[in-house]
Design a protein around this nucleic acid. Structure first.
Length: 976
DNA sequence: CAGTGAGCGAGCTTCCGCTTGACTT
């Protein structure tokens, strides 16, 4: 590290994103270059209150980490887990004469490079170097041809980051208030959840249709001998299966002819479609049994199939799921390991492009393993199918300029299987098409009406149809065939051979089987199919697909049933709320529109601040030219006049959001499903019953809900009260914990004047729901116990259990008891003794302070640390402040205590102060904004307009904040 | 989602995208 510098060869520090990449590149650059990784982003907006720098605490926007009142100035902090790496980079830079920022060439990579520059503050020349494949040539080329940092691209990334923060950190709290705490909403996860919910809605609304057809096995009538010979020779089959497709010229309905409502769709092309029922199908099969059949037509078409593109992240996840049964997370973990150990290229990519060396390696391997006839003349190239692809990397492929065969790798288990998949797919992508013939045969026969007694035939002229496929050259299929999501789907490589048939051939029906079918609701998403859907909609990035699934699972929005993703009722409530009140934010096109706008910012055709302003504050008098679709999309529609509300308005006035309504779903028959804090339950006329958390919503029928209601869940019958009226005693788990209660007979009025309430009692701490006995329950239900009468006042004293534990009660006067057992044992004398003492006001009042920290410089009052309900806190007797996560009673200093108190004072009562301060800031900013424009006399260059304005504003903001901002554009010096 | 007799300092949750370990099971 501290090797001496030679006179003419300076030391260059090259920073890439990934350590594995650093290792490889080091080998290509040789001495004179130190290659180190940033290990991803090094700075970000503060995560929560704990990470907000002290200078911004108390600001109304501190929670967001973005100063929404000053042009959305972001606060950046070096993530705690990156501090060590940043320190390392700084020390390496100290020994370097030149800095190469070699982060990925995409929006995020450009931003990482900018953050590196801001944090490392290099005093040596800085160059931006980019490459898309890691080969010696490419790296050396890149080093020789550096460019400058693309500030617009950095702006686009920052805009994306801020939008996501505002969306996530403003909308999530709405869910905490209206649904339950700890929930979350975000640009990506909320749409992912919505997709799953909508699919479930489709399934719920789905009405299956039932239809019948006939499957027939046919053989050539006159050629029994020849047939047998052919079969024996292992060539074509002797018979074949065909399905009834038409009757009297009318097409027979198949699943595709029905809508999701179970109704036969109106017919395409004029001819009405015939829906066969069971009776008709059986009668027809019977009437066809003895009929002669003949081949009506044989149609042959050439078949061709091209190989699939090499893997990118999503297709790898899909295929690993289909073929290896891996979840997205497991796939990525295994791939990461393969990448780090040098077996494959980078696994988080949206590109299907292979480098030239990779193409050469694949082609060499095709020739070697399959022969030259499998190699196309020219290399195959694959255009990206991903609309917002950033293509910073190659496709996922075996690494190196000569691919190791799976056997050569020495890999085992999951590693081997995933490598083999990647290897096969890559090699196959450079092979020839598979070609062959696909054949359609139509067979006709006439039903013999007389053959069936009495039954009415749905028709007489029957037409059967069969398709076959013969692959004459397998091409890439020799190496690789893609799996199917639908297990019933036919695989591409499967040949279906038909006997050699000619028009007019006579056939006999070996068997005719009437078959009933039902249409099926759309299948639920799997991890892989959801990821595919998200990618198609340009939502999420390769590095996040697996974690998106993780997030919606963690939040309880979806759960897995086998491989299927099933939405919870909670997800229905959350998605419903978002659709009704934040409709445009969960619009499926929101992200795609945002991407368009970010592209415009990256091209310099739009600006970040007005775009964010419109998204957050709504439409203003800003010229609309540079405002994008997504920002507009967030606006809610006319609030007053032509002002369109932004996100802030939406989250400020929550009066219109009826929490009860968003959590309620009618089941039918007066039953309502509600999502409560403790999970879903059904309710009818005040009777409630738990619904299992993992009940798929499409399985909740009225019947099932009735079942739940008939036997409210969580009850454990303990027995019958031996005393009249002999109610059943049950133990339940309630919102205040486990308790026992009695079951009142049906028809007992629960509300109104004559309402009868059952006795209830919480279990003692020594009891548990599983072990509580009838005796325990009866003892508990005997409370409150009359201890005696106060001779002084004549008032009755009772002992009972309450929310603060056991206590005595005399009229409105109460005293806490020491133990639960005392409720049953305390005597009148002891009770009177307790009442003789004054009430203990404030349980903590007597507790001595944990620590004394001198006098507060502001209030001049002594500061102490105390222990309270919410843990330790500091107080000066007037202001209280809970210790933060980073603080401890042992380590806290007096200075820190004063700081906490000052922060607290600044927050609550200082509303007025904050406001006026904010006002001042705004005024000051406006002033500075105008001033330079006047001073520079460049007023005529207002043609240079908004850009200059924005820069000036940003500059002002920069001066106020500790976090360094972007370098000013060079042109600014000249104009200013 | 039961029903209740005081009175006491809340603070935190959450987003999306880049990257790996360092942990524990």
């Amino acid at each position: 590290m501290s090797t001496s510098r030679t006179a003419n060869a300076g030391r260059r520090l090259v920073i890439v994103e990934s350590p594995a990449k650093a290792k490889t590149i080091k080998g290509y650059l040789g001495p004179g270059y130190v290659v180190e990784a940033s290990v991803g982003h090094i700075r970000d907006l503060p995560n929560g209150a704990a990470e907000v720098p002290a200078a911004y605490k108390g600001q109304p926007w501190a929670r967001l980490g973005v100063n929404v009142d000053a042009d959305f100035e972001p606060v950046y902090v070096v993530n705690s887990d990156k501090r060590a790496q940043v320190a390392k980079l700084k020390s390496l830079l100290a020994d370097a004469d030149e800095l190469y920022l070699a982060t990925d060439e995409d929006r995020e990579g450009e931003a990482i490079a900018w953050h590196l520059q801001q944090v490392l503050k290099p005093k040596v020349p800085v160059r931006r170097m980019v490459f898309h494949e890691i080969t010696k040539d490419a790296i050396q080329q890149a080093v020789a041809n550096p460019r400058d940092l693309n500030q617009r691209l950095v702006d686009a990334q920052e805009t994306r980051r801020i939008l996501d923060r505002l969306y996530g950190y403003e909308v999530s709290p709405v869910l905490w208030k209206k649904v339950m705490p700890r929930l979350s909403a975000g640009r990506v996860q909320s749409v992912a959840t919505r997709l799953v919910v909508e699919r479930e809605r489709e399934r719920i609304a789905f009405v299956p249709a039932h239809y019948w057809d006939i499957s027939g096995t046919f053989a050539q009538a006159a050629q029994a001998a020849a047939r047998a010979a052919q079969a024996a020779s292992g060539g074509d089959p002797a018979d074949f299966t065909a399905r009834l497709t038409a009757l009297d010229g009318r097409r027979v309905a198949t699943g595709r002819d029905f809508g999701s409502d179970g109704v036969l769709r109106s017919v395409r092309g004029g001819a009405p479609v015939l829906q066969l029922d069971e009776t008709g199908a059986r009668a027809l099969a019977e009437a066809l049994r003895v009929a002669p059949f003949q081949v009506r037509s044989v149609e042959s078409k050439p078949y061709k199939r091209s190989p699939y593109a090499p893997f990118r992240t999503t297709t790898l996840q899909q295929e690993a799921s289909r073929k290896l049964g891996f979840g997205a997370k497991r796939t990525m973990q295994v791939a990461q390991k393969l990448y780090e150990n040098g077996f494959i290229t980078y696994m988080r990519t949206d590109s299907t492009t292979l480098s030239e060396t990779a193409v050469a390696a694949a082609r060499a391997q095709v020739t070697q393993l399959y022969g030259a006839e499998y190699l196309p003349d020219a290399p195959r190239t694959y255009a990206s199918k991903v609309k917002n692809a950033q293509e910073a990397h190659e496709a996922i492929r075996p690494s190196g300029d000569r691919f190791r065969t799976p056997a050569e790798t020495g890999l085992t288990g999951d590693d081997f299987r995933l490598y083999e998949l990647i290897w096969k797919r890559t090699v196959a992508s450079q092979m020839k098409d598979a070609v062959g013939q696909s054949v359609t045969v139509k067979v006709s026969g006439t039903a013999q009406a007389g053959a069936v007694d009495g039954a009415e035939l749905p028709g007489r002229e029957a037409e059967f149809s069969a398709t076959g496929k013969i692959i004459t050259f397998h091409g890439f299929m020799k190496a690789y065939v893609e799996g199917a999501d639908d297990p019933d789907a036919e695989l591409d490589d499967r040949e279906r051979r038909l006997p050699p048939l000619a028009e007019g051939d006579a056939l006999t029906a070996v068997e005719l089987r009437p078959e009933g079918h039902s249409t099926k609701p759309p299948a639920r998403y799997t991890e892989a199919s959801l990821v595919k859907e998200l990618e198609e909609r340009e939502i999420g990035r390769p590095s996040t697909y697996a974690s998106i699934i993780g997030t919606i699972l963690d939040r309880g929005y979806v759960f897995k049933k086998g491989t299927a993703l099933v939405p919870s009722f909670l997800a229905f409530a959350v998605v419903g709320l978002l659709e009704q009140h934040f409709g445009r934010l969960v619009d499926y096109d929101f992200t795609a529109k945002m991407e368009d706008d970010l592209d415009r910012i990256a091209r310099g055709e739009a600006e970040s601040v007005p775009w964010l302003r419109r998204f957050y504050f709504g439409e203003t008098a800003e010229p609309s030219g540079d405002l994008g679709e997504a920002a507009r999309a967030a606006s809610t529609g006319g609030v007053d006049g032509d002002h369109l509300g932004g996100l802030k308005d939406l989250v400020t006035d929550l009066g219109a959001i009826d929490a009860r309504e968003v959590s309620s779903f009618p089941v039918g028959d007066g039953i309502v499903l509600r999502v409560g804090r403790y999970g879903p339950y059904v309710e009818r006329d005040g009777v409630r019953a738990d619904v299992p958390d993992d009940l798929p919503p499409d399985e909740l029928s009225v019947e099932l809900a009735e079942q739940f209601l008939a036997k409210p869940t969580g009850d454990r019958e303990l027995g019958t009260d031996p005393n009249p009226p002999h109610h059943t005693i049950v133990a339940k788990d309630g919102r205040y914990g486990p308790y026992v209660t009695e079951v009142l007979p049906e028809g007992t009025p629960k509300t109104g004047k004559n309402a009868v309430k059952p006795r209830t009692a919480s279990l003692l701490k020594s009891m548990s729901l599983d072990t509580v006995t009838l005796e325990d329950a009866l003892r508990l239900l005997s409370l409150p116990r009359v201890v005696g009468v106060d001779p002084a006042s004549g008032e009755e004293i009772t002992a009972q259990n309450g929310k603060f534990g056991p206590y005595l009660k005399k009229g409105t006067d109460s005293r806490s008891l020491e133990s639960e057992e005392q409720m049953f044992t305390v005597t009148l004398e002891e009770a009177l003794a307790l009442y003789a003492q004054p009430k203990q006001r404030g349980r903590r009042a007597a507790a001595p302070p944990l620590k004394e920290l001198g006098e507060d410089p502001v209030s001049g009052r002594p500061v102490v640390v105390k222990d309270g309900r919410f843990g330790p806190y500091v107080t000066d007797g007037e202001t209280n402040a809970t210790l933060r996560q980073a603080d401890s009673v042992e380590e806290i200093t007096a200075e820190r205590a004063y700081e906490l108190l000052a922060e607290k004072r600044a927050k609550a009562p200082a509303k007025k102060t904050t406001k006026s301060a904010a006002k001042k800031t705004t005024t000051a900013k406006k002033a500075t904004k105008k001033a330079p424009a006047k001073k520079t006399a460049a007023a005529k260059t207002t043609a240079a307009k908004t850009t200059a304005k924005k820069t000036a504003a940003k500059k002002t903001a920069t001066a106020k904040t500790a976090a360094p901002r972007k370098p000013e554009p060079e042109s600014e010096e000249g104009s200013g």
